[in-house]
Amino acid sequence: MRRGLIARSTVELPDAVFAARLDRVRAAMQADGLDALLIYTNNTRPAGVSWLAGFVPYWSEAVLVVPRAGEPYLVAALSFRVKTWIARVSRLGDVLHHPRVGLKAAQQIATTRADAALGIVDFDGLPAGIADDLREGGPRLTLRDASAMFAALRAVADPAEIALAGKAASIARKALAAMQGENLNAMIGSVESEARSLGAEEIYVATAPDLDRDPRFKRIEGEAALGKRFALRATVAYKGAWVRLIRSVGEEAVMYEAATRFAQAVASLPSERGFADCRAFLIEGCRIAQPLEALLGSRVGGPTPPPPGALVSVQATLAVNGTTILFGAPALIGQFGAAASLLVDPLFD
C-alpha cells in the first residue's frame, strides 16, 4: 500500500492543468463518438486516474468516469468515511462509494443515457469482475476499448508532468545521496527516510548487493552481505509521477566513463542503437495507467518506442574494463529533432 504523502498541491497542479487535460480527452471522446470514458485505478495502475483527477488510491480500487459533458466523478470501493480525504487530495466533481465499483458506475452512466457508448481505458486488462458488473449495471451500454485514444494523449508529458518528474528525480537523488549506514539495511532505511521526509508518495528501494556476482536488483528481507561494489535503485513517486534512479558504488574513473556512455545512449532515444554495447538495458514509461511500463529493452519483445515528448526511466548494465556498472535515471525524449536528455545527474561521487 502507499504509505507516503498523498496530497494535492494547487501550486504544482493548478486546476488549469487538469482542465486542459480533460479538454483534450473530451475532444478525443467526441471524435470517437464516446458518451463517457471509464478508467480503472488501484495501487498498480494509478497513472490514468491520477493524470486526470490527481487521485491516487493508497489501497483498494476505484473507477473514474469522465462524461462528455460535466465533471468527472469517482466511484470508489473505499468507504465513505474517507470521502473527505479523497476530496481533499483530488480534483473531482463527486465521489460515490460502492463495494462493486463497476456496477455503480454503469448504473450511474445509464441514468443519463441507457445505451451510452462507454470507452474503457485498458479494457483487456480491466478486472473481469468489474467488466461483469458493468454489463450487469448497464445492460444496454456499448463497451469499447479506448486504450489507443487515451494513450495518444497520456503518453506525451505536458509541462506540469515534466516538472513533477523533475521533483521526483530530485527526491530520488537526495535520498540516494543520503545513503549511509553500517550495513545494507541501514543504508536502505536512510534512503527511505529521506525520500519519505521529502514528500515522496511512494519509494521502493531495490539492491544489487554484489555487482561482481550478480548485477540484478532484488528487495532485501533480513540480512544481506554487501560486496565491494554494489548498487541501490530508488523508485520514487511524487504526485503521480514515477521515476527510477540508480546509485552504483565503484571506482570514480570507471563510474565517470560509464556515466558518459550512459548519457550518450540515452540521447539517442527513442532509437535503441545507443545501447548496443550495453550488457542489458530497459526503457520504461507510462503509456496508459501503469506508471513504469516496459517499452524497450534487451529482454522486451514487441518493443513500444516512446513518442517524442515522453518521460521515461532508463536503466543500463555497462562493462568498463571488465567491471560491471549499473546506471539508471529518468529522461525526456526529445521533440522536433532534439536529443533526449537525462532529468538528473546519475553520478553521485
Partner: peptide, 8 residues
Amino acid sequence: DSATDAER
C-alpha cells in the same frame, strides 16, 4: 508484465 519485477 513489469520488467523490474520479473528480474526481481
